[in-house]
Design a protein around this nucleic acid. Structure first.
Length: 436
RNA sequence: GGCGCCGUGGCCGAGAGGUUAGGCAGGGGCCUGCAAAGCCCCGUACAGCGGUUCGAAUCCGCUCGGCGCCUCCA
């Protein structure tokens, strides 16, 4: 199994099964419902976990929830705690509907405060961090490899970590230094007391602490959106490595989702929530949509593309509606996934399969085995279809066609087949197919 | 400006020095009372300009265009 690693910009081989494969993926910051773009790392990591497990690996996947930060304070002045708790539930609820199972651990930053504080203390003792004005900052010059992951070297300007508030930047020894702990400010309703006074953790330190808490000092894969490379992941590396932890070996960064050519993001406001997308297209279409593009590449979110994904999902359903034929091989499918988890190619391979068992096994990797399930038509439609079959028997095609129209009006489609009882009722394919 | 990624047939999208990607849409055919589904056939694509090579969509250079990060962000 090979995966592309951002740090070395090359494919890296995973140890052979059973591994272990310990993975940490950066989850969302919760203060509203997550959008479709936020779902990508969740989907990719769950698919990867499922695939590795069925390949005999011992997988431990951690996906955190960031439930404390400035955005959350700002979104719910005075009761940010409740908002974070609600939004965490929404996140679980929405991703649950994808039907891919859950990561092994989904820790929240607010539940990891003791470990965070301990790690900061260790960094201070080691000379890699210093308290200043109630804050604690990481001393970037103390970590020689700073900038390596993101390819920023020797250019201090590009590596600055601006403080959110200008006035606090003078507390820093170096403009590249970043906050590990932030002093409590007026109006912030969630805080903890710690050796440096009342406050709350900075954004990056939580991931260093949570990864270690659940995976130990060294682990195989760290993932997240490519927009996290700098400064988030760069800073995580600085913290953990300075504290003597080996930290992540392979860095997986997924490409962004684009809406009308622009990155879908909360700050730009060009968002489609995962919930809306799920309501409109259904989980199967959404999953096929994600399957169609390599995880590292950006993908566009548009009606046209989703319609195409829906049509593909339908074509898989049709395979199960006709007889199974021994057509297809597992090998090329597995090879595609083992080569940098190329789901687009794996999808192409599955399109050639006519063997029900094989196809179901393939779809199962991606949580799409539901495409194999036949939907039972209402009994009254069953009756109409039977009458239509009789009419056709009598060569009363006018009556037959009338009954067919009636069935179609109810949203179902009759297909004549050889097998008993001579017809098949399937839900009418989505009608947003376009004409030229 | 710095650091990266990318430009593939109507649309989506893999691949990567020489061999059919695949899907969606479209055209033709088989099947069907007519359909639907399925099956068969069809478009001969890789931004542009140079270079390397026996051979490049795949390597190198330049140009044009798009995107991401350098501020919170999956």
């Amino acid at each position: 199994m090979r995966l592309y690693d951002t740090a070395t910009r090359s494919l890296q081989e995973l140890p052979p099964p059973p591994g272990p494969v310990r993975m940490y993926f950066c989850g969302p910051t919760v203060y509203q419902r997550i959008h479709v773009g936020n779902a990508r790392p969740f989907v990719v990591s769950m698919w990867l976990k499922r695939w590795l497990e069925r390949s005999g690996y011992d997988v431990n996947l951690v996906e955190n929830i960031t439930d404390i930060n400035d955005k959350i304070y700002a979104a719910a002045p005075g009761n940010s705690g409740e908002l974070a708790a609600d939004a965490s539930r929404w996140y679980i609820e929405d991703t649950e509907k994808l039907g891919l199972g859950r990561p092994d651990h989904e820790p929240k930053a607010t539940e990891t405060i003791p470990q965070i504080v301990a790690l900061i203390e260790e960094l201070v003792e080691g000379g890699h961090a210093y308290p200043a004005g109630g804050d604690v900052y990481f001393r970037v010059p103390s970590f020689a490899d700073y900038g390596r992951l993101s390819g920023r070297h020797g250019d201090d300007d590009a590596m600055r970590n601006p403080s959110e508030e200008e006035e606090r930047s003078e507390l820093k020894e170096d403009p590249r230094d970043f906050a590990l702990w932030k002093a409590h400010k007026e109006g912030e309703d969630t805080w903890w007391d710690c050796p440096w006074g009342r406050g709350r953790p900075g954004w990056h330190i939580e991931c260093s602490a949570m990864a270690e808490a659940f995976l130990g000092p060294a682990f195989e894969i760290h993932g997240g959106g490519i927009d996290l490379v700098f400064p988030h992941h760069e800073n995580e590396i600085a913290q953990s490595r300075s504290a003597g932890r080996e930290f992540a070996r392979i860095w997986m960064h997924n490409g962004m989702l684009r809406l009308a050519g622009e990155k879908m993001s909360k700050s730009l406001g060009n968002i489609v929530s995962l919930r809306e997308a799920l309501d409109r297209w259904g989980r199967e279409t959404l999953l096929v949509y994600f399957l169609g593009g390599h995880w590292r590449k950006p993908i566009d979110y548009s009606d046209e593309v989703l319609e195409q994904a829906a049509a593909q999902a339908e074509s898989f359903r049709n395979v199960f509606r006709s007889g199974s034929e021994p057509v297809g091989e597992w090998e090329p499918f597995a090879a595609a996934l083992e080569d940098d988890f190329n789901t687009a190619e794996a999808l192409a391979v599955m399109h050639g399969w006519r063997d029900h068992d094989l196809l179901r096994r393939g779809l199962e990797v991606f949580g799409l085995e539901t495409l194999a399930e036949a939907e039972a038509a209402p009994v009254e439609l069953e009756g109409l279809a039977r009458r239509r079959a009789d009419a056709r028997e009598r060569k009363d095609f006018a009556e037959g066609d009338r009954l067919r129209d009636e069935i179609e009006a109810a949203g179902w489609e009759v297909r004549d087949v050889d097998a008993e009882p001579g017809f098949q009722l399937v839900p009418k394919a989505p009608t947003w197919r376009r004409r030229p």
